[in-house]
Amino acid sequence: MSTTEIERQWTTRLRHRVAAKLPPEKLLPDTQPTYVSSWIYVFGVTTLAALVVVIATGCLLAIRGPQWWHESDIGHFVNSLHLWSVEIFFFAMVIHLWGKFFMAAWRGGRALTWMTGVVTFVVSILTAFTGYVSQTNFDSQWISTQAKDGINATGGGAFFNVLNLGQMLMWHIVLLPIGAVALTVLHVLLVRVKGVVPPFASTNEVES
């Protein structure tokens, strides 16, 4: 195969494009800009850390099943870890959102980073909701019977039936987590490509 033919392959072109857009030193940098040393920049990575615990405990719950999380001590513990890591996930994500909103984090060509964050937030809410209705307890019965009226009023009940436990569980443990994790990976990669948004005061000195 000639050099020209190799250069024309889609794998070669994709590799060159990815390497140019996100070289290793940009993907995992040794240092960060000075303005990043503020507590407000901590909440994005706190959200990521909570997401790792959410997924790890979710995997354990999926492996062992409802009887385990309802009846055994260790099952109760893992179930509680799953709930409380979700609480921390949303707590940190909303503070991250406030911080990025007030520093207009979509500046400097970062609109797609902002939008992937917004969509991840919406997908996370749907994931949490389907989790609440998949608990298989009185709480989930109450939430699903209340939610069905709201969703039926929108016409969405024909496709998304909150009283169908199998459907809700599949959305919760397969479709929505795949979406949330894929969007999170994209969001983090975009942050690495564009860099962390500078505060307003130092915009000129950083971007000039």
């Binding site: 000075t34 040393s37 503020s38 507590w39 407000i40 901590v42 707590f91 909303v94 503070i95 406030w98």
Partner: peptide, 19 residues
Amino acid sequence: MVVTFLAALLLPFPGRRRR
């Protein structure tokens, strides 16, 4: 959450002076 947000803006970050 509001208190945490304000604290994150106002509290000094460890190591900032050293940097």
